[in-house]
């Protein structure tokens, strides 16, 4: 992982996050929801970042499993942790929205359920890595691929089951007043996600180097 990637990405995300509040405040209030609607800028964006992280997790898991690339494994750990964090943000902002909009904190509609399940799989992934002992990296890679396999289901869930959640197709049709701040936030979250990924993967890399040095020292 490039050493300069992290400062660049974190700087870029600071720009996004610095400007985002201005855009969000200037965006008109939605008629029914009022101020609460602005949660959506965080809610939707954190899910997008989570999808990205899961995608990275799945692909790097496959690379590690089939091509035996140790660097892919380090990226997978980073992606899994990032996905858990962004998923948690989605799961927290979701009920805040729901209680105002639908009058309940939690509903078991298709998309919330699938999102919850994905979050569970990711936590299981981290548990496996922590307590699986030696060799669990490869097992975790298998699990990472199963996590990615759920993404398409998550995407189509609201299309197939007509539920309370707005379908995915709503987002591109948003008027510009709402659309610009929304996509701005999404971009900000995605850049932040990438920054976290590079930093975390780099930490794993340093750890691997340390292990290698330790072994070399013993071999003397």
């Amino acid at each position: 992982m490039n050493k300069r990637a992290f400062p660049a990405l974190i700087g870029l995300s600071l720009v996004f996050f610095g400007v985002a509040p201005i855009l969000i405040v200037r965006a008109p209030n939605e008629q029914e929801m009022g101020l609460i609607q602005k949660i959506f800028y965080f809610h939707f964006a954190s899910w997008m970042a989570m999808y990205l992280a899961i995608l990275v997790l799945g692909i790097s898991s496959a690379l590690f499993l089939f091509r035996r690339k140790p660097s892919a494994d380090r990226l997978a750990v980073a992606a899994a942790e990032a996905a858990v964090v962004f998923g948690l943000m989605g799961l927290i902002t979701g009920p805040l929205w729901a209680v105002k909009s639908w009058g309940v904190w939690w509903t078991w509609d298709a998309r919330t359920t699938m999102a919850m399940i994905l979050e569970l799989i990711l936590v299981a992934y981290l548990i496996l890595r922590a307590y699986g002992g030696p060799g669990s990296d490869r097992l975790a890679a298998g699990l990472g691929m199963f996590a990615m396999a759920n993404l398409p289901f998550l995407y189509v869930s609201t299309e197939i089951w007509r539920t309370i959640h707005p379908p995915t197709s709503v987002v591109p049709q948003l008027p510009v007043d709402f659309g610009l701040p929304l996509w701005w936030s999404v971009a900000g979250f995605i850049v932040l996600c990438l920054a976290l990924l590079t930093a975390r993967a780099r930490l794993e890399e340093e750890r691997a180097t340390l292990d290698r040095l330790y072994l070399a020292l013993e071999d003397e």
């Binding site: 890595r129 922590a130 307590y131 002992g133 030696p134 292990d211 330790y214 020292l217 013993e218």
Partner: peptide, 19 residues
């Protein structure tokens, strides 16, 4: 037998290596 240097051998995760 190999000398143990003054560094605590760290293992990934709470469980150590199973060699």
């Amino acid at each position: 037998p190999r000398r143990r240097r003054g560094i605590a051998p760290a293992a990934p995760g709470p469980q150590g290596g199973e060699a």
